[in-house]
Write a protein that binds this DNA or RNA. Sequence first.
DNA 1: GCAATTACCTACCGTTCGGTAAGTTTATGG
DNA 2: CCATAAACTTACCGAACGGTAGGTAATTGC
Lengths: 203, 203
Amino acid sequence: MARPVPHSQTRLLLLRAALRHFANRGYAAASVQAIVDDAGLSKPALYYHFKDKAGLFQALVHEAHDERYRLMRAAAEQSREIRGQLEGILAVLFDYFHQNRELMRISFATMFAAPGELPAGLDYADKCARNFDFVHALIAGAQKRGELKKRFHSREMAFGFYGLVNAYLTSHLVLRDVMLDKKNARRIVALFLAGAAAKKKTD
Amino acid sequence: MARPVPHSQTRLLLLRAALRHFANRGYAAASVQAIVDDAGLSKPALYYHFKDKAGLFQALVHEAHDERYRLMRAAAEQSREIRGQLEGILAVLFDYFHQNRELMRISFATMFAAPGELPAGLDYADKCARNFDFVHALIAGAQKRGELKKRFHSREMAFGFYGLVNAYLTSHLVLRDVMLDKKNARRIVALFLAGAAAKKKTD
DNA sequence: GCAATTACCTACCGTTCGGTAAGTTTATGG
DNA sequence: CCATAAACTTACCGAACGGTAGGTAATTGC
């Protein structure tokens, strides 16, 4: 392993520069030379701290997924009801999104990327699954407690909520005019819980 | 322009090969050499039919968005109620998805890609917006007719539905076990319309 | 005081990239 | 029967790529 100093100043400089370039150009199009230039260093400095270009990328992606997971857990613990839990998750994700736009962009681009676009050994699928499963478990629990309808599978509802969240996050990535704040988080959860249909019959 | 024969056999061969490579490796990582090799042709043959690598990519992406738009319009015309319209859209998208997996993968990857990852002149944003606006208009119309709740903005609900769709499509790209069929389309629309919450109060 | 290690540097490697110059074959029109 | 153009080909270009060999200054251990 080429990780002698886990949190060295140089390593952080490289990570920060890499974040910018990967976020703005994607993995393949980002140039190692441009990254080290941006960091004010040389290529051997990078290859001293990271195994290769893929290792540098992996370090960023894993950190993003882990941080999202940690934040979602913490937010969900603040409430006992599913509404409060989902609102909390949404609010904290929105907040994290504002402060880490580029990291989130990388995270999303990775999820939807072509299979051969990213380095081979990158195992992000399990981290994605873990994050989704956490929301799924919350929803399944709420369903068991009677807070959610029985007629939908918990997995279907988790998909619904996850889809809503992702739609807002990605659209905010593209169209800057979509506001992501606490008030909006409440409205989104309300739509998810109450449904869009005008009440005529329960259906 | 270097488009002497709009639907020549060679041009189609190149497009088909390009589709495979762009879908499997992403734009930047896909090699022009590999594409023409796959098509059994040479590089100048490609540059005879397309301006450059970006032009080749653009031709694919535009076709995908336009086809989706055309299909959604046709499906929506089959019904007068929002439920039937959304179910129809979902079903036809699922079907198209099965038959054009790689094209859809490119389409999604393009939407979520980093800004500098794709060629500069590629103006896919307006086509994305047009497709979204179509769904938005359907939902706004239904809201006006009283089929949908007034308490949510039509835009919010359009986001909700679009998010649901995208969540299913993208997850089917990653996890193959998610089934996309007509029955599932009905369930998804039902969840969107009825909401996830167990009925206690209308909220 | 000196060997070893850390943390880099300059300079360069072979490969692959997108793109092109120039020649060749085939079909068409006069 | 030959000129023109379309539809390609082989062969190659300079540039950029990821990665490395080998050297160096600074710090540390003994």
